[in-house]
Nucleic acid binder design. Structure first.
Length: 507
RNA sequence: GCUGGGUUCGUAUAACGGUUAGUACUCAAGAUUCUCAAUCUUGCAAUAUGGGUUCGAUUCCCGUACCCAGUACCA
């Protein structure tokens, strides 16, 4: 039994989108469940689309999510460039593996499975527009390659001259005519496709001496001994080509699983950066600023816990077959199975993402949350040393059920740390009446706890709701919010009286 | 257009070919509380469509509609 080895092979053309994180996650879960390795490989064979910082962003995102690569990235979060026992297949960046691909392309030519093509991009463009004008689609395959300039149509001497000369050329796969390619996908089952509908894909280009995705991908998966390829659905149409490529090389192929895409919450189409901006949710794990200086939200910066984010993502397109919804990473590793992965695309629901965060926030200890709250309190000018961790923890215990993010804590609890500097006008109009506040003030002077206050109101047959709401208005600036008893306990009787004086003066 | 993939409440999903089609999120109502939130209870709401196979179809087969992807010397 071969050791399971799966890879996540992003292209550093921009920040990793949450759909990409999900693909990486499913790879990781599959690897860990089978006691295998999760490998990172950077597919940067398109020099034109390279985006500085994207590679580092991708790795940092995965690490934040708790998806740790076994191979390809070292303990410092850097893509490995030189081979070692732990990273035997280095370098893991395709641009640095440049030299190895040409011979594979030529091997295919030698075997008659590929050929040299000398068409220029202008010629191809012309052929495409001519076909379009006739209402046809130009397919570069058996039907058209006979009429084009390539090593199959040109005399050998001329081919050699062209290969040696300055003109650009490519190696194209010689797609067979009318053969049925029979494939299996771990999620979708059996798929068949007739090769006549496929085209002669470019495998290697002379211009930059680089392979295209298809060649580099197959060669590296083979060299790196990948056992399962788990990737996005956008690759399903190239699966026949990849099958044929493995066959042409005579290599054992990995198993394939094509994951459905993440769709936008409303309307049709796949989730994009624009949807997030428009509807106010992040589509990236981490905040990202592009070359134009535009910043996109990140789950991390928006206050999501990584385990909540991962849990939510895992459940988007997969289910455990039970009603359990909350999973740690280890539980996901145990529960994951490819046949429970959904075939259809999943619309992302930002509300559910918040719900997950809320659940995770509740599960954290008060103390842990208090530690996370301290920097926010400091930002708001609170002397956290003076308040003390014990007191802050008490406050957190009181408010955590009301929050979705740690970032909500301040708004919910600021009236515990600071006296109100303004009062909600609507509540003032409703409750600040002499018949309410006068007895309430008297009561506040007489009672130091919420229990005493309630007893005082009851024994004097005062209107409970009015007096209490009036008191809350004085203590917090609004009539709705935390319980009076809790506020009194946390701020102390002296502070209660100070706030009363303040209110009486101001209102 | 062509090729491939897909289709269960608004969303994510469950259901050996036999269920009053279940669960969660959202939403609504009620209970509770001094208020709000939380909590609890209840409710709204789905098998795209037409055929076929079958005693019986959400489930299997075919057509149609709709959605998605691919159709680059991009990945």
């Amino acid at each position: 039994m071969k050791k399971t080895r799966v890879r996540f092979a992003p292209s550093p053309t921009g920040p990793l989108h949450m759909g990409g994180v999900r693909t990486a996650l499913y790879n990781y879960l599959y690897a860990k469940q089978n006691g295998g390795d999760f490998i990172i490989r950077i597919e940067d064979t398109d020099s034109h689309r390279f985006v500085p910082g994207a590679e580092q962003y991708i790795i940092e995102s995965l690490l934040w999510c708790g998806i740790k690569p076994d191979e390809g990235v070292d303990e410092n979060g850097k893509v490995v460039e030189t081979a070692s026992p732990k990273h035997p297949h280095a370098p893991y960046r395709q641009s640095q593996r440049k030299g190895i691909y040409r011979k594979y392309a030529e091997e295919l030519v030698a075997k008659g499975c590929a050929y040299y093509a000398f068409d220029t991009s202008e010629e191809l463009e012309r052929a495409r527009s001519e076909a379009e004008a006739k209402g046809e689609t130009f397919i570069y395959n058996w039907s058209s390659r006979r009429k084009l300039r390539n090593s199959l149509t040109l005399p050998q001497e001329e081919v050699e001259k062209l290969l040696a000369g300055r003109t650009d050329w490519t190696v194209r796969f010689k797609m067979p005519e009318d053969t049925v390619v029979s494939m299996d996908d771990m999620i979708r089952g059996h798929i068949e496709v007739n090769s006549s509908t496929l085209d002669d894909k470019v495998l290697w280009k002379r211009a930059d001496e680089l392979p295209t995705y298809h060649l580099a991908n197959i060669v590296d998966d083979h060299l790196m001994e990948i056992t399962e390829v788990i990737r996005g659905e956008e690759w399903l149409p190239s699966l026949p080509l990849h099958y044929l490529l493995y066959q042409a090389f005579g290599w054992e192929r990995p198993r394939f699983a094509h994951l459905s895409l993440l769709l936008k919450p409303v309307g049709n189409g796949k989730l994009s950066k624009r949807d997030g901006d428009k509807m106010g949710f992040p589509v990236f794990p981490l905040q990202w600023t592009n070359a134009e200086g535009e910043t996109s939200h990140g789950y991390r910066e928006d206050g999501y816990f990584p385990d909540a984010f991962i849990n939510m993502l895992a459940m988007l397109g997969w289910n455990p077959g039970t009603e359990q919804e909350i999973f740690t990473m280890n539980e996901l590793v145990d529960a994951f199975s490819m046949d429970k992965v959904q075939k259809a695309g999943a619309k992302f629901n930002p509300e559910k993402a918040k719900w997950y965060n809320k659940e995770y926030l509740r599960k954290k200890s008060d103390r842990e949350l208090a530690e996370l709250f301290i920097p926010i309190l400091k930002d708001n000018g609170i002397d956290t040393d003076k308040e003390g961790i014990g007191h802050i923890t008490d406050v957190v215990a009181l408010i955590k059920e009301r929050a979705t993010f740690v970032g909500d804590f301040w708004n919910i609890s600021k009236s515990i740390f600071t006296a109100p500097d303004e009062y909600v006008q609507k509540d003032v109009d409703k409750f600040w009446k002499e018949e309410n506040w006068k007895p309430a003030y008297e009561a506040a002077k007489a009672c130091s706890t919420g229990e005493e206050l309630e007893e005082y109101i009851r024994s004097r047959e005062l209107p409970m709701g009015k007096v209490m709401n009036c008191t809350r208005l004085v203590l917090t600036g609004a009539a709705s919010g935390l319980g009076i008893s809790d506020i009194m306990r946390l701020i102390g009787h002296e502070e209660v009286l100070r706030r009363w004086e303040n209110a009486v003066n101001k209102l």
